[in-house]
C-alpha cells in the first residue's frame, strides 16, 4: 500500500501537469489561430491565381505557372480536398471563430 500511494500520486501529478501544459499550449496556439486561418485563405487565393484555369479563371503566363508547379504539390492536394469539402464549411468556420454561446 505504502508503495502504491506515492506511485499513484506521482502519476496523478504528472497527468495534471501534462493537462495544464496542454491547456497552456492550446492557449498559445489560439493566439495565432485566426491569423493562420486567414493566411490559409490567402494561400488558397494564390493557388487559385496560379491554377485558376481549372475553375474558369484567367491563368498567369504558362511558363510562370509551370515553373511554380513543382512547389505547389502540397497546396494542390489541399486545394483538391478543400474543393471537395467546400459545401461543408459551416462547422469549420464555427470551430475556427469560436462561435459558441
Amino acid at each position: 500500500m505504502s508503495e502504491h500511494q506515492p506511485n499513484f500520486l506521482i502519476r496523478l501529478w504528472r497527468s495534471l501537469r501534462a493537462f495544464l501544459r496542454g491547456i497552456d499550449q492550446a492557449q498559445r496556439e489560439r493566439v495565432v489561430a485566426l491569423t493562420a486561418y486567414e493566411a490559409r485563405e490567402l494561400e488558397n487565393m494564390f493557388v487559385l491565381m496560379l491554377l485558376g484555369s481549372f475553375a474558369g479563371m484567367p491563368s498567369p503566363p504558362s511558363f510562370l505557372a509551370v515553373e511554380l508547379l513543382p512547389h505547389l504539390e502540397h497546396e494542390i492536394r489541399v486545394l483538391n480536398r478543400r474543393a471537395e469539402s467546400s459545401t461543408d464549411a459551416l462547422a469549420e468556420i464555427m470551430g475556427t471563430i469560436d462561435a459558441d454561446a
Binding site: 501534462a18 493537462f19 491547456i23 496556439e29
Partner: peptide, 17 residues
C-alpha cells in the same frame, strides 16, 4: 495531443450561456 486538443475544444465551447 489530447490535453492540447481538450484546451482548444473547451475554450471553443465555453461561453456565457
Amino acid at each position: 495531443k489530447t490535453p492540447v486538443l481538450f484546451g482548444h475544444h473547451f475554450a471553443s465551447v465555453a461561453g456565457a450561456a
